[in-house]
Design a protein around this nucleic acid. Structure first.
Lengths: 156, 156
DNA sequence: TATAACCTTGACGTAGGCGTTAGGTGGGCC
DNA sequence: GGCCCACCTAACGCCTACGTCAAGGTTATA
């Protein structure tokens, strides 16, 4: 059972499973959004399940938040930092340092959370407005229906 | 008191009030997102309050939904159609035509509503995930605090 | 061992969304 | 009338996020 750390997927399959092109995967690697994958002897890239997840996350961020790849890089970098922080065991001596890092991590996540929260709220407002409109139009439509009925009745 | 139909704002002021550049305003006009404004004798553009609102709306759509200007054009065009529909009084003969138009308008708004709703939902999920993370990190931080305390106690 | 399917790097192309000159005109004030 | 700022069009430039060849190496299968 693959645990996500063994790289065994070729670029074509990753492309297929994530819905992006191979070009895009190489591009993300070039821009530092994906860490350089391991390679076969011949030079073919080998990706892991973790890579697949990361690509999907990148696309979600692009799609939902509409931010630049540069911004997304910052976010995923922060995540990577956190993963490392999590992996370290605890040499008691370095507690202050770890607190500092964790504090920074918290700030990053808080910032993201703030952005998402704000956007969510604005989107909700927009949805409400659209819904109201829809009701208005439906009322108009009903009015038109009635007007049509009357006209037909008068003609008969 | 300006009712929004009298055009009296020069491009510079519109730019300032909407937070976009003059270039952007001309660009939107070029692309059909803003209707060609009235002009002074010398050729200077004169905008109305309505134009200001439209620009702000365009920016909100760009920012929130992250869609292309072409898509936004469709949306604002639909709005314009609606305004006209609303303005017409009702020659009884054209009822079928009006129903057809209104029906199309409803479809457009429904489509927009669908997009916004879906995005809102996904954003809420993302917000929830981020919040959970934040809690996790805060727990870790608390653990570190306690660890620090113990170490200090042991040293004393 | 040949052939197809898959992959490699490199380089140029492109669409969207403006930014940035350049060279000239309009408008209000002294 | 002169000054200066605001505005005009036209045209080229630029960045992002890839698309699209081209020319060749690798891997799997027969």
């Amino acid at each position: 059972m693959p645990n996500g750390n063994e790289a065994y997927l070729q670029i074509g399959e990753v492309a297929e499973r994530t819905g992006v092109t191979q070009r895009t995967l190489r591009f993300y690697e070039e821009k530092g959004l994906l860490k350089p994958p391991t390679r076969m002897d011949g030079g073919f890239r080998l990706y892991s399940e973790k890579d697949v997840k990361r690509v999907k996350q990148i696309r979600r961020l692009q799609d939902l938040l509409g931010v630049s790849l540069a911004d997304i890089k910052e976010m995923v970098d922060a995540e990577e930092m956190l993963r490392q922080l999590k992996a370290q065991y605890r040499p008691d001596a370095a507690i202050q340092e770890k607190k500092r890092q964790l504090h920074k991590a918290i700030e990053v996540v808080q910032a993201q959370y703030g952005i998402v929260k704000q956007k969510t709220q604005q989107m909700e407002e927009m949805a409400a407005q659209l819904e109201e409109r829809l009701r208005t139009f439906e009322r108009w439509m009903a009015d038109l229906e009635r007007a049509g009925q009357k006209a037909a009745t008068a003609r008969s």
